[in-house]
Design a protein around this nucleic acid. Structure first.
Length: 678
DNA sequence: GTCTGAATAT
DNA sequence: AATATTCAGA
């Protein structure tokens, strides 16, 4: 086109200036240069024309100051959408303005009044552009400009605006998503600059991919893929396939997966302890939450949740042998584990419950309710956790609520319940609902955040947006935010998914389990905790279970659960004891399969499973989805179960019962910090 | 040869 | 810190 003999005669120039008078002058000058001029006073219109006639112009010359869309904006658009060189015009030629023009990608900046001599040479930009594009064609040109984008990345306005533009105009692929500035623009005014840029471009394009940013959306897809696959089967390639993101490479995924796993591994006592605040402040806690929690939701169909990942296991003081131990238990064959995605979870639950019980004061052994009283034979929270908790504790000792949190850190089960009770007591309307739902609320508490959709939801996304692995921490926030109660019970989504959540868990060991936390708790705190409503019952029940289990699963306990089963079971009360855990047809007398929800809808009922050889270790798990379902559909029934329990433990009121049950469900992260049942 | 994941580099 | 790249081993 412009390469004919008469070049630059007929150069197609689009001239833009809102000042009609000046536009006419400019137009005339350009014509004198024998250019083919199209003139408009409206930058918007100019853009339209460019869009409609993409190949009908060779160059754009535009005023800077214009209403509606100023020259810079126009420049950005042109740069984004075309390869056309743009020359800026302004009455002011101050450095800043010129710089801005250059940054925005102007190939030249002319000050008014423009002389014809200047216009006579503007064709050079077209030629240069042409040469540029030829060069770029030899190599992959797309990414070269990233360097330019990065170069400008620190420029305030241009970058932002250009970024918006690019988002609006360019198809979003993750390969180029971080290109914030016109990626087509190659034009440089000065030869040096061109050389420099080309050099830079070549280097970058030849050596590196554009850097991928794992934004919320992408990360959520990543999580979704992992959840879908199961953490143990989440390999880069598979994840990549599932994510199905244009431009995303296996390497990208592998790298992200690596970081992801590291995040899971990272020993962070705060996470382990289920502290309220720690989830909000710790950068890594979200990793756990945003991944492990949803993974619960996805832990169905025989898949193990992220929580069950080997990495989780290994890094939480639960070596895999613990799991092996469980899986090798004569009572639990591997097939049962495979078919029960819950199996791992139950182990975790058991574990968390064990720590829970360890942390629960036993009123029968009140004298043991002392700081640093470590009981031999009982596995304690590890010292690191304690010291962290203690540190936390002392630093926050001024503040009651915070102190509770600190206590929560050190005594997760206890304090979580404690907090739950606070919530319950402080918000009667919620309390009612919660109470009516009985123990089953425990599951709800934990599942509140387990919206599987959250993998792609704004909730998780926002959290991820916050730059940290600071996913939604509903579990941890729940106790201090009772609105969660209502959320829990109105979370219909929850019910739509096949959750298999570990919830109710009892775990004890041969050793007497008294309250002998090695965490120094000040008496007043303890006193407060003890006297908080519901807590005593909580403790009492805990100790009951403890003692029962000490005896190798006492009859009473059996009775307790037996008494629950007939009431709760929708089938009319057939106890599933000894039968509910389908895969275990042979059940020795040490195992209790108790079903809180019976065999509702034919789905895995709760079960108590011995998971440690030769030890009186039991974990009870239930399907929280069905628990929730039962809450929704069988409130009366559930209430009955409460009544039934009340009959048995008539000393303990309903709320206390809630406590013990809540206990089982709300201590998500304790599972990590305490060893498995051994 | 492909894939994975740890190590290392940027 | 986040992401990319490399590379040994499965």
């Amino acid at each position: 086109m412009v390469e004919e003999d008469h070049f630059p005669v007929g150069l197609r120039v689009l001239a833009v200036d809102d000042d009609r008078t000046y536009l006419t002058v400019l137009e005339n000058l350009l014509r004198k240069c024998q250019y083919n001029v199209t003139a408009t006073t409206q930058s918007v219109k100019a853009l339209e024309m460019l869009r409609k006639n993409r190949n009908k112009f060779d160059l754009v010359i535009s005023d800077v100051n214009m209403p509606e869309m100023d020259g810079f904006k126009l420049l950005q658009h042109v740069g984004l959408e075309t390869d056309l060189p743009v020359i800026m015009l302004s009455g002011y030629g101050d450095k800043e303005r010129v710089m801005k023009g250059v940054i925005y990608g102007a190939c030249d900046f002319l000050t008014k009044p423009v002389r014809i001599q200047e216009l006579q040479n503007i064709w050079q930009h077209v030629v240069r552009r042409k040469i540029d594009s030829k060069d770029k064609n030899k190599t992959a040109s797309e990414e070269k400009d990233c360097s330019m984008a990065h170069k400008f990345a620190n420029e305030e306005e241009p970058c932002t605006v250009a970024g918006e533009c690019s988002q609006a105009l360019a198809p979003k692929t993750y390969a180029n998503q971080n290109i914030k500035v016109d990626h087509k623009r190659k034009e440089r005014c000065e030869a040096e600059e061109i050389e420099e840029d080309d050099k830079e471009n070549d280097e970058t394009s030849n050596q590196k991919k554009s850097r991928l940013v794992w934004d919320t959306e992408l990360h959520n897809k990543f999580l979704a893929a992992i959840n879908q696959l199961g953490i143990d089967k989440a390999f880069p390639k598979k994840i990549l396939d599932l994510m199905n993101i244009d431009g995303l490479s296996r390497e990208n995924v592998a790298s992200h997966l690596q970081k992801f796993r590291l995040g899971l591994k990272k020993p962070n006592p705060y996470h382990r302890m289920g502290s309220v605040d720690c989830f909000r402040t710790s950068s890594e806690s979200g990793a756990m939450l945003s991944t492990t929690l949803p993974s619960y939701a996805y832990a169905h169909g025989g898949r193990f949740s992220v929580l069950n990942s080997p990495s989780s296991l290994n890094t939480r003081g639960m070596n895999s042998s613990a799991f092996v131990q469980a899986s090798e238990s004569p009572n639990i064959n591997s097939s049962s584990i495979k078919t029960h995605g819950n199996m791992h979870s139950s182990i975790f639950s058991a574990n968390q419950a064990s720590s829970l019980l360890q942390g629960i004061p036993n009123p029968m052994e009140a004298n043991r309710f002392k700081p640093n009283n470590s009981t031999a034979g009982i596995r304690r929270f590890d010292l690191l956790d304690h010291s962290a908790a203690l540190k936390d504790f002392s630093s926050f000792s001024e503040n009651r609520a915070t102190v509770r949190n600190a206590a929560n850190i050190s005594l997760p089960g206890l304090s979580n319940n404690h907090l739950l009770f606070q919530g319950i007591s402080q918000h009667k309307h919620h309390s009612e609902a919660f109470r009516n739902h009985s123990s089953l609320g425990a599951a709800a508490v934990k599942t509140q955040s387990f919206d599987p959709n959250s993998c792609g939801s704004s909730k998780m996304g926002d959290d991820y947006d916050n730059k940290r692995w600071r996913g939604a921490a509903p579990i941890s926030t729940f106790p201090s935010n009772t609105s969660a109660f209502s959320n829990v019970f109105s979370n219909d989504q929850l019910l739509q998914h096949n959750f298999k959540l570990p919830s109710s868990t009892f775990c004890s060991r041969n050793s007497p389990v008294g309250f002998s936390s090695s965490v120094p708790l000040e008496d007043d705190i303890l006193g407060e905790m003890l006297h908080q409503e519901g807590l005593l019952g909580n403790i009492l029940l805990a100790s009951c279970h403890t003692q029962h289990n000490q005896g190798g699963c006492s009859k009473d306990m059996n009775q307790t659960f037996n008494s629950i089963n007939p009431v709760i079971s929708p089938n009319g009360g057939t106890s599933s004891l000894g039968h509910s855990y389908e895969q275990n047809s042979t059940i020795d007398n040490k195992r209790i399969d108790a079903s809180l929800v019976g065999q509702m809808n034919g789905v895995n009922p709760s079960s108590i499973t011995q998971c440690s050889e030769g030890e009186n270790f039991y974990s009870m798990k239930s399907n929280d989805a069905y628990v929730l379902q039962s809450m929704k559909s069988d409130e009366a029934l559930v209430q009955n179960s409460l009544d039934s329990l009340d009959d048995i433990m008539n000393e303990i009121d309903e709320q206390d019962l809630n406590a013990i049950m809540l206990m089982n469900g709300d201590i998500e992260f304790d599972a990590y910090h305490d060893g498995l049942c051994n």
